[in-house]
Nucleic acid binder design. Structure first.
Lengths: 241, 241
DNA sequence: TTTTTGGTTTGACCAAAATCAATGACGACC
DNA sequence: GGTCGTCATTGATTTTGGTCAAACCAAAAA
């Protein structure tokens, strides 16, 4: 299957949901028009793979909608999730020969796809875009390094608590605190237990055990397998070290 | 102490040892002159700290000579080394408020230091420099992510073997192989056992034990505490998973 | 030379997480 | 409503790496 298969022409950047947050935010109308001409909108179903690890780096993309994971396999078959990308995030490896990780949609998703060669050329000719990309890449590097501390120096409980706090901060309605009740402290986990294990460098059993432990201790509740209620974000954050 | 203390004015980029490899490589003479005007050469002694974690991001720098480590502390006092920088590498956090890691010289070193504000302005006005910085940052992100796999999914032996192979590949004379004898397969380790532990997310005892194990098994020899002889790079690489 | 010092090695023991193995629960589909 | 398949939980056991403590060693200082 051709990975540049076109689902929808990307005609209307103007109406794009992430127009003001993605790396194209600083471009003027003329530039947007040019970018429009080299990009294509693509829809992905949950579970569909956009890029394979080690592939020639043919494409890069902007996320418009949905959540995707970046991940890699070890020689002995274990998986490590390297990062998650959300709407307005950029993915792929510009200015590189191969894509160093696989990309898979975790939910149904929409992305703007560019051939890497086209994108590289466009970027070099448009410093404002390159600047945005640089700022994002620097922020991503900071994030990867914080995650290195989690992977290298935290125990299972700290890893899990840190992950849950981070997830809550991203997904829970803003300025939610302990005083809120019910739904407002409940979120839908974007990852399965196995995927959490792959993010945290643990096994599924260890994740499950520590989630149960946090529940038993009253810090969280589990209305459903994919539902999580935070009873005390503060206490949870303290467990994160 | 003012961290912009000047040791030597950075007058002669032309004569700089890393002139053709650092991010300034693509600049023309006029641009180099401008960059020259905002940078200062600084010497560091082994063990001296250039940046403190959490500091306002006042400065960024290019490494001219020596090796430095980027590292961070956890709440419970453990250290995680996030990366090492070598001559021609860039360090610091441009376009950011705070420096997310401490920087310490592991050997005597020389760096070109810039006030962050000056550097940021210069970079925005010189897309060729920004492009170089972007390429480096992307490469660094790839490297950080590969390290995440090591930290998250490898056991102690795999971590150590991987580290030793990587170190050998950087420090051993090029195209060295098993057929070589004696000195040509021996290198000086740039890190102490404790620092290796901090890079690999282990304790010093575990590092020591596994080094002894690899020695007992004949894959390596230890002529001195800081000396390492590789008997079989291939076999060592296999241990790395 | 002897002493001191700091990094390193080694051993005994312990705790945490992985592994192995059932069992349980939920949703999709018939 | 029942059955299948997937995912999650729980328990028993093993393995790994961490912790604590002691010995070791080499280089620098006295």
């Amino acid at each position: 299957m051709d990975s540049l298969e076109i689902d929808t022409p990307m005609n209307f950047c103007q109406a794009c949901a992430v127009r003001n947050r993605a790396i194209c935010a600083d471009l003027d109308d003329e530039e947007i028009g040019l970018l429009n001409a080299i990009g294509r909108r693509k829809r992905l179903r949950a579970g569909e793979q956009l890029l394979w690890e080690g592939d020639e780096a043919i494409i890069v993309a902007n996320v418009v909608e949905g959540v995707l994971k970046l991940s890699t396999q070890t020689a002995d078959g274990k998986e490590q999730i390297l990062g998650m990308v959300y709407p307005s995030d950029f993915l792929g490896r510009p200015f590189g020969e191969t894509t160093p990780y696989g990309v898979e949609a975790l939910s149904d998703a929409q992305v703007c796809v560019f051939r890497r060669a086209d994108f590289d050329r466009f970027a070099r000719e448009h410093p404002r875009l390159e600047h945005k990309l640089l700022e994002r890449t620097l922020a991503e590097l900071d994030r990867a390094r914080r995650w290195m501390v989690l992977l290298g120096r935290m125990n299972a409980e700290q890893k899990l608590a840190t992950y849950l706090v981070e997830t809550a901060e991203r997904l829970l309605p803003a300025n939610c605190d302990e005083t809120k009740l019910g739904d407002e402290r409940t979120l839908t986990l974007p990852l399965s237990r196995q995927q959490m294990a792959d993010v945290l460098g643990l096994t599924i059993e260890t994740v499950s055990r520590h989630i149960s432990k946090l529940k038993k201790e009253g810090l969280i509740d589990l209305p459903g397998r994919r539902e999580l209620t935070i009873n005390s974000l503060k206490a949870l954050a303290e467990r994160g070290g």
